[in-house]
Design a protein around this nucleic acid. Sequence first.
DNA 1: TAGGCCATCTGGTCCT
DNA 2: AGGACCAGATGGCCTA
Length: 150
Amino acid sequence: MKSKGKRAKHTRQPWTEPEADFQLETEPGRKRLHSNTKERNVRRLESNERERQRMHKLNNAFQALREAIPHVKTEKKLSKIETLTLAKNYIKALTTIILGMSGSCLPHSESQAQASASRLLQCYQQHLEEEGEESLSKYLTQIHNFSQGS
DNA sequence: TAGGCCATCTGGTCCT
DNA sequence: AGGACCAGATGGCCTA
């Protein structure tokens, strides 16, 4: 049995010219019109291809996000909406944990939470600039050690 | 079989 | 002008 979302290519009919273009072909200047519709057809197919590639990139990003967030039912692929929801919750949870580790007060309101999150992001970005991309764990360890020491 | 999820096509709008 | 982005439409696959 095919897994969900993995299937053979659809047998959708390719894009066809609007009827008006065919009617116009019998009129004077039809050669130009014909090449225009042909050009349009080519451009449409090209933009379909680009759109497909764009959606594939988007799906790759979703897959990367799925792999970045822990979840319970590992045998079931998370849907896109589930992935986004879990990711949001995961970020919130991590924020709470890190703020706790660094000895900050937990935010009491949504606006405080947002302010804390942006402070955290700012701090993290600064750290990335100084230390390089692969040092998140080092960063977290430093925060942990700091909170232990203080 | 209905409903959820998805891939693809398409035309409109925005951006470079 | 052409590409990127977006949202609506359409139809296929899967599960309860």
